[in-house]
Design a protein around this nucleic acid. Structure first.
Lengths: 146, 146
DNA sequence: GTGGTAAGTTCGAATTTCGAACCAACCGCC
DNA sequence: GGCGGTTGGTTCGAAATTCGAACTTACCAC
């Protein structure tokens, strides 16, 4: 993804890696335990060469790792690295947003948290623990526009 | 964005709306207070027709609202609706992830929370307040694959 | 030896995005 | 009254990306 122009920003950098079409859905499948090419293919709906290309991008970016699980013929599966695991809460939050604003009817996919309750993610300020509300954040420093 | 095939999922639904190229960067600019076409154009780096198309998509999806601020000639600015504001914490979280895994050097953009501390978003379980860790979520129900 | 599985690659066709140019309507300047 | 600047786009043909479908390689089970 092109990041040459526009504001210098970590959001743009993040999107350069996971903002391409299918990338997030690939991560969803890996998160759901589907780690093999053909499973990811069927469950995302991407086509074969685009998926191969996306997987390469994600591996190169250090978000997924390619692990060989068979020698002859060589077969690989994809597992999340630390960086990939760190995206999980964000995918969950986007899924929650999708439930509220982009899905009619009951949520197709539901998780249970280890505390026993149905999982609904919420984003808080790491320092004070307060829920992040639009308007409670002030711009401290702004990336330059290139 | 095509959502015909693949797993039925609110993440896919969310991405059908905000997963297209430039959409999230447009939302970032609106979030930063840049609401006019030419500002958004310069600060994202998108080209003119793609930006016009993205703005239409976001308005149609109920994420942005087009507000006329001048009668002759008609001029518009774009403001976030409730659905758009609800995406702010997610953009902040993605920015935080980008800081850690996709940006070298100091973060280009920094926010301060109303509590006074530098803002670092964290995602928690809404019920128990515990930080979301990969592995603490169990799949309760899974969307079907179409 | 026939069919199935897995992880891709290759193909030409369709769609999307690209930069650059254009446009209409107004403004301030002198 | 003419000149340049601003705003919010549209139009263009060219380049890049994504599409579905077919093919490949290597193994296994029957």
């Amino acid at each position: 993804m092109n990041t040459a122009r526009g504001r210098e920003c970590s959001l743009a950098n993040a999107l350069a890696v996971v903002g391409e079409r299918w990338s997030m859905l690939v991560l969803r499948e890996v998160m759901l335990g589907q780690r093999r090419y053909d499973q990811i293919l069927a469950n995302t709906g991407a086509n074969r060469d685009t998926l191969a290309s996306r997987l390469r991008t994600l591996v190169d970016a250090g978000i997924l790792e390619r692990q060989q699980y068979e020698q002859h013929p060589p077969r690989y599966e994809y597992v999340a690295t630390e960086a990939g695991l760190a995206l999980q809460p964000i995918l969950m939050s986007l899924m929650e947003w999708g439930n509220q604003y982009a899905t009619s009817g009951p949520p197709p996919t539901v998780f249970t948290h280890s505390c026993g309750a149905e999982l609904h993610p919420r984003t808080v300020c790491d320092h004070c623990g307060e829920t992040l509300e639009p308007g409670n954040a002030r711009i401290e420093r702004l990336g330059a526009v290139r």
